[in-house]
Amino acid sequence: MVRKRNFLFYLVQNRAFLLMILPAVLFFILFSYLPMAGIIVAFKNFRFDQGIFGSEWNGINNFRFLFLSGQIWNIFKNTFFYNTAFIVTATVFQIGVAVLLSEITSKFYSRFSQSLMFLPYFISWVIVGAFFYNMFNYDYGLMNAVLKAFGADPVDVYSSPGMWKYILVFFHNWKWIGYGSVLYLGAILSIDEEMYEAADIDGANVFQKIFRITLPNIMPTMIVMVLLQVGNIFRGDFGMFYQLVGNNGNLYDATDIIDTYVFRSLSQMGDIPMSSAAACVQSVMCFATISVVNGLVRKFSKDNALY
C-alpha cells in the first residue's frame, strides 16, 4: 500500500511535466504503438468492416501464400544488396569528398561547392524522378540525344534490367553526397589542429596525415553513421525506387524491394494478406538486425552504442 501511495504521490508531484508530455505520448500511441499492435493483421483474415482487431484469425496462412508466391526471396535479396551497395559506396564517396573539401584553402570555393552539392538533398524524389525522366526517357532523354548525335543506337533503360543497379547506386549517391560530406567535414574540422602541426614538423606527407590522423579521428562518426544504416538494411528507400522505377513490371526482378512490393500489393491490388505478411516479416527482420548490430557495438565500444 505504501508503494502505491508513493507512486500516486509522484504522479501528482510531476503533474505539470506529465501534462506537457501528454500530447507527444498520445501521438506516439496513435501513430506508432497502435500500428505496432496492428501488426497482428498479418495473422488474420482481414475484413474491412470487422477491422484489424475484429477480423478472424487464420494462423500462418498469409505467410504460407507469401512464401509460396516465391517473391519474398527476391525482394529481401534486392533490399539487402541494394542497401549494402548504398552504404559502402556512400560512405566511401562522402568521406572522400569531405577529405578533399578539408584540403581546399579557399573559403569561398569550399562554401560554394558545398552549397551546390547539398542541393539534391533538398528536393523530393518526385523531382529526382522528373530529372531522371529528362535524362533517360527513350524518345527525348539527354542520354539518347547524345548517343544519337554520335551515331550510336538509343538505349531503353526500362527494358534493360541490368543497368539499374548502377543507376540506383548513382542516384542514391547523387542525393546524399552533399549531406554526408558536410557531416563528415564537420567531424574533420573538429580534429585538433595541433596534431597536423606536429605531423608537419615530423615531415609527414599529405597521405600519411589523411590515413594516420584524419581517418582514425572520424572513425566514431563513421561507425555511428554506418550503424544507423546497417540497422535499417531491410528497410528500403521507398521514395527512390518508386519514383525512378515506376510501374515497369519487367524491371521488378531487378529492382523490386520489400517496400515497393508492400505498397503495390496494398494500394494497387488491395492484397492485404500478402502485403501484411511481407510487412510483418520486414518489421521483425529490422528489429532483429538493429538489435544484433547494437549488441555488437556495445561489446566493442560502449560509447558508440545507440541505446
Binding site: 507527444a24 500500428p35 505498397f263
Partner: peptide, 27 residues
C-alpha cells in the same frame, strides 16, 4: 521529472520497431 528516462525510451523505441505500412494504413 522522475520518469524522464522511461519516456525517452518510450519515444526512442518507435525507431527500433514499427508495425509496418499495412497496419498503419489500415488504422
Amino acid at each position: 521529472f522522475r520518469y524522464r528516462n522511461s519516456f525517452a525510451f518510450f519515444f526512442y523505441f518507435t525507431t527500433l520497431f514499427s508495425g509496418g505500412l499495412v497496419a498503419y494504413y489500415l488504422i
